[in-house]
Design a protein around this nucleic acid. Structure first.
Length: 845
RNA sequence: GCCCGGAUGGCGAAAUUGGCAGACGCAGCGGACUUAAAAUCCGCAGAUCGCAAGAUCGUGGGGGUUCAAGUCCCCCUCCGGGCACCA
């Protein structure tokens, strides 16, 4: 009876036991000093927001990372496997409103709860390097970086149109606006407000961020493409069209042309400029104000256009806006041919891209064609296909063509014309080649409480004054009343706001906005390398040892936001002399989503599966292993509880198998394998094939689902041989070798069970300190192969041949097969294809 | 509209370099053990026809290359994701 209970696999007793042991031994998962002599490996999973509950996406993410970390430990690497908390952010303020709990307490208790969940999962993190971004020890370095960037001209303040989420009651960065809505509130339309904001000059690195993508060849192509699109580099030309009245004096001194006398347009197709039949301004264009000043009728129409654009932007569907425009009554002069073209104002012209003005070439641009057709503007063809016999239908938008009707440029190719026309513009002073980016500077001011205070002071006498380093950190007041009032909460805390000017000592006030929380996550992984440093964000020597991150793992939803900001931050830190690498992560892996019943898990759909429930029912090992087994890590995973039960049954089988034969195995510990039986040889062969398969997968392919399947196959074979094992038909040292290695292979996927069985096999040190098994190709080799024999591509028979049989011998064996003989009787074998080790195909007529 | 994924049994999936399609698991069915059930163990299991031996069909659809195609090429459908008047 006692025996039976002991023989049952019960994760509820073994898992807590090991949790305690591991918690009492912080060195187990700790990174070793930089001079330990081992090769380093930095494996990182994206840090979570401490909502209070892990979800299955986290479980999957961390199961992948932990399996890799454990594998690398066993391969003898010095592994850094840290974890932290992206702990600033709006939910803490919302919770404060709802439950009257201060954000700090709410956040810290959530962290404690989630950390406990992580421990239950058995994740091997080095908690000595834990980073919590809402603590002053961390965010003071956000402030420090802000000041360094300010000194470098990478931080500036300007009033501008910004995205405002009414739900968050704060400004959002461009990257945080999804389809015109807030990234946190998918149904809340973002409006535009004029506000004074702090910006990071990420555009200064636009070209480098783009170029760097080519070198990140171990990042998913998908992420690189998304970033390329986001950066949106576009090569073209800026050209000045002159206002007609000013044209004459402009002819004498074009380079003197001011904003009032010229309209600068950006085009990628300057070669089509002889086909320009109007100039189109964005409704917000600087010139518009003076044009409408004397024309009330026009003013009304422009207001309408502006409103249409605003509505379309809010609806997130700028692409579908119906094009409207209004003629200003004024004309501009095309600088290349002196021809006048009408100036229009149109709702589809964006003020914040290029120069906010375009030349309209309806013959060679879809949008211009649509607009010109609607308003009866002339459509002129100036490009014809290289093969002039081809009949063209306008608009003809290809760049493979020849110029016509283009004065001195006629007969040039589009490409040649662009270059020549650019140099003409430059020489004459009415234009120049220009590279435009879609990427905008990163607006980081947030009118929220729970974030890093921006370390700036406003003094009536000295203006904007940075907080001196020795006054950092600017501490976020711990207890404030959170209300739903608009404006920055800190502006209602006089003791925070009122300060003295560092320069003149007079009364001054602090900046009351806080930083975007994406600042926190832009450099946290550097802090992990030196988390306790109180005099610098980190010791560059330590960071240099650990960086780049060897493997970064997270969800693809961060492809633009976090992953572009953190690339930017790394380049800034490099230019500050704090790091030598150009990119934070050498290799990036984006795991698929966890779904249930074909849909993303969400409270509203009621299909959320709680990790705690799974652990309580099946144990952490089964939960983790299922997360790896149910699908390859890069694909979406459909959570099926029956599948978890299946994995749990498998683990129980492993348990019984090892427990049953452990006494024999233990007794043979230390004895080398000198002789073996036929069945033992077959089992060792399977074992070494399994080692090879799993090791190879860890090296890159990462199809852990097939790794788990391979272990299951091995266990199936062992179980099929159970009677022989029990009867002593396999030498004890072989049994020891089989079970010991099985447990080693299991260790990255089911750490609790592996630890328990490892001990059961008489091992005393942690399994993480044991060497990962190496496959012996001699032992893995099959001595006989089954060769399928096809006739005309269809399988007819399988024949057995020696593994080293020559093609001739294989062919002979194939032709001798009885079914082959009867099928080929009376027919002609035209051709025999022998693929050694694979198959034989007979072409028969 | 453009770009990137994906589509394989009742379900999750496998097939790593063009070489036995469906490994492994779930659900299902049959059997053993049990008074019975659970658990466990053994076996069956793509579809159609057939008592069987076996035959035919089969990786979203259509065409092609090849001795051989889930895999390569061309065209199309559907699903997921990203971008979308960016001049």
């Amino acid at each position: 009876m006692a025996d039976e209970i002991e023989q049952r696999y019960d994760p509820a007793t073994i898992e807590p036991k090991w949790q305690q042991k591991w918690a009492a031994d912080p060195a187990l998962y700790a990174a070793e000093p930089v001079d330990c002599g081992k090769p380093k490996y930095y494996v990182l999973e994206m840090l979570p927001y401490p909502s209070g509950q892990l979800h299955m996406g986290h479980v999957r993410n961390y199961s992948i990372g932990d399996a890799l970390a454990r594998h690398m430990w066993m391969r003898g690497y010095n592994v850094l496997h840290p974890m932290g908390w992206d702990a600033f952010g709006l939910p803490a303020e919302n919770a404060a409103l709802k439950n009257n709990t201060p954000p700090r307490e709410w956040t810290l208790s959530n962290i404690a709860a989630m950390k406990r969940q992580m421990e239950r999962l058995g994740l091997g993190y080095d908690w000595a390097t834990e980073v919590t971004t809402c603590l002053p020890e961390y965010y003071r370095w956000n402030q420090w970086f802000f000041l360094r960037m300010y000194e470098k001209g990478l931080v500036y303040r300007k009033k501008s149109k910004v995205n405002w989420c009414p739900e968050c009651a704060t400004v959002l960065a461009n990257e945080q606006v999804v389809n015109g809505c807030c990234w946190r509130h998918e149904t809340t339309i973002v409006d535009q407000r004029d506000l004074e904001q702090w910006f990071f000059r990420i555009t200064a690195y636009a070209q480098e961020l783009l170029d760097g993508l080519d070198k990140l060849d171990e990042w998913p192509e998908k992420v690189r493409t998304m970033q390329r699109n986001w950066i949106g580099r576009s090569e073209g030309t800026e050209v000045d069209f002159f206002l007609a009245e000013e044209a004459e004096q402009g002819a004498g001194g074009r380079d003197q042309g001011s904003e009032k006398t010229r309209i600068r347009v950006f085009t990628t197709r300057v070669d089509t400029i002889y086909g320009a039949t109007s100039v189109q301004l964005a409704p917000q264009h600087a010139l518009v104000a003076s044009l409408v000043a004397t024309n009330p009728e026009l003013k009304v129409k422009v207001a309408e256009l502006l409103d249409q654009q605003k509505k379309a932007r809010e609806a997130g569907d700028l692409g579908a806006i119906e094009k409207h425009g209004v003629f200003t009554g004024r004309v501009a002069i095309n600088p290349y041919n002196g021809q006048p073209v009408p100036i229009w104002i149109a709702n589809y012209i964006l003020a914040d891209y290029g120069t906010g003005a375009i030349m309209s070439v309806p013959g060679h641009d879809e949008r211009d064609f649509e607009f010109a057709t609607k308003y009866n503007l002339p459509i002129v063809q100036v490009i014809q296909p290289v093969d002039s016999a081809v009949k063209v239908e306008l608009p003809f938008c290809s760049e493979e063509g020849t110029l016509i009707n283009s004065g001195e440029f006629t007969a040039l190719s589009c490409e040649d014309a662009q270059l020549l026309m650019q140099s003409v513009a430059e020489r004459s002073g009415f234009g120049e080649p220009k590279v435009t980016f879609r990427l905008k500077d990163w607006g980081v001011s947030r009118q929220r409480y729970w974030g890093t205070p921006i370390p700036m002071i406003y003094c009536d006498k000295d203006g904007i004054v940075p907080v001196p380093d020795d006054q950092l950190p600017v501490i976020l007041p711990p207890q404030i009343e959170i209300t739903q009032q608009g404006g920055s909460p800190l502006s209602r805390v006089p003791e925070f706001m009122h300060t003295t000017c560092p320069k003149c000592g007079g009364p001054a006030r602090r900046e009351t906005d806080t930083m975007d929380t994406f600042v926190d996550s832009s450099w946290y992984f550097y802090r992990y390398t030196d988390a306790k440093n109180s005099t610098a964000p980190y010791d560059p020597a330590k960071a240099q040892y650990w960086f780049s991150i060897d493997q970064y793992i997270g969800g693809v939803e961060h492809a633009i936001l976090h992953l572009i900001y953190s690339r930017f931050w790394t380049k800034v830190m490099r230019d500050l002399g704090l790091i030598v690498n150009d990119e934070p992560a050498r290799r990036l892996f984006t795991q698929g989503m966890v779904i249930k019943d074909g849909a993303k898990m969400s409270k509203s759909k009621g299909n959320v599966v709680s990790p705690d429930d799974m652990i309580a029912k099946y144990g952490a090992d089964a939960t983790r292993m299922y997360a790896l087994f149910a699908a390859p890590p890069d694909r979406d995973l459909d959570w099926q509880e029956d599948g978890v039960a299946g994995v749990s049954r498998f683990l129980a089988r492993v348990w019984r198998l090892v427990m049953k034969h452990a006494p024999v195995a233990r007794a043979a510990q230390g004895q080398s394998v000198t002789q073996n039986s036929e069945i033992g040889t077959a089992l060792l062969r399977k074992l070494h094939q399994t080692i090879a398969k799993i090791t190879l997968d860890f090296e890159g392919r990462w199809h852990f689902n097939t790794c788990v399947a391979a272990i299951m196959e091995l266990v199936n074979d062992l179980q099929a041989a159970d009677a022989q094992l029990a009867a002593g038909e396999v030498p004890a040292p072989v049994i020891h070798e089989l079970l010991r290695t099985l447990v080693l292979l299991l260790a990255p996927f089911a750490p609790y069970l592996a630890a328990e069985l490892w001990q059961e096999l008489g091992e005393e040190d942690s399994i993480l300190r044991a060497a990962w098994p190496v496959s012996d190709p001699e032992l893995a080799k099959e001595d006989e192969l089954e060769i399928p024999v096809q006739i005309n591509g269809k399988l007819v028979q399988v024949v057995r041949v020696a593994a080293d049989a020559t093609p001739k011998a294989i062919e002979a064996a194939a032709l001798a097969g009885e079914r082959i003989v009867s099928r080929t009787a009376g027919k002609i074998v035209v051709k025999v294809i022998v693929v050694p080790g694979k198959l034989v195909n007979l072409v028969v007529k």
